[in-house]
Design a protein around this nucleic acid. Sequence first.
DNA 1: TTTTTTCATTTGTATATACAAACGTTGAAA
DNA 2: TTTCAACGTTTGTATATACAAATGAAAAAA
Lengths: 141, 141
Amino acid sequence: MIDDFFDNCLYFTVNKLSRAITKMAEDSFKKTGLSPTHAFLMMLVIDKPGISQSELADALHLKPSTITRFVDKLVEKGLIERKTEGKRSLNFPTENGEAILKDIKDGWKILYRAYSDVLGEEEGKALNKLVNEAGSKLEKQ
Amino acid sequence: MIDDFFDNCLYFTVNKLSRAITKMAEDSFKKTGLSPTHAFLMMLVIDKPGISQSELADALHLKPSTITRFVDKLVEKGLIERKTEGKRSLNFPTENGEAILKDIKDGWKILYRAYSDVLGEEEGKALNKLVNEAGSKLEKQ
DNA sequence: TTTTTTCATTTGTATATACAAACGTTGAAA
DNA sequence: TTTCAACGTTTGTATATACAAATGAAAAAA
């Protein structure tokens, strides 16, 4: 029937998986008070204080305008400080920003455990590898 | 470095892939004037005229409120007619709605070709199968 | 040195999707 | 038969993300 048809469409199955794992990730990062992507952005800023927004966009595979919006929110929350330098905007973690790194790392572990428990650890890794490679190939189109 | 860290996170890689294939799908369905998910919804309504919104939600793995919004838009476009029957809302294709089925099927083929060309047809199928299974398991949590 | 082009960022606007609460209908229990 | 609980849908509101246009700064060309 028609359901089979959907199940054979990578657009459909990937988005189904995306919604499921996004929900799981949001739960896992709850303690940080951040969405998973905001948490990743914080990690990048802590890892390289002064990182520019285009570097963030590259690393997260998101558009610059999206990064502006995300950083806005993290500045509002007092986790990032933005310094404008010429045409660039450089991003530094505040003290509070540094302080949540532990919660973020915990969140990541919780997430990893949660999906590994369901999928199997090795299967999860294998899936991840395939998904990552496919994403890299398709995003170049 | 930290990029490797992201590449090992299924949340991250799946969403990267999701954005890439969503873009590809939007291009492929351009001729229909619909987003891919709207197009899938139309297929369901044509396949089973009178289908209810909760059936649509089930088939598309989306929330009922989302279906309401999608159907609203398709009614506005003159592709679906909604008939309220008691507490249910039944959905029928209009003549114009039926008429775009061909474009939708074409769109699906274009999409399939596009990602199969990049990933390899067999690899694409294999990936799809894994992704579909993982999505089904994770969405039950 | 002035002009033009390129580049990084921001802003305005739009879309897909979700959650929680509200609403109306139906079927079950009293 | 009235009341209540369950159900399907809708509405209000919120989030992540994108695109296109605007802005402002730097680099290149004239």
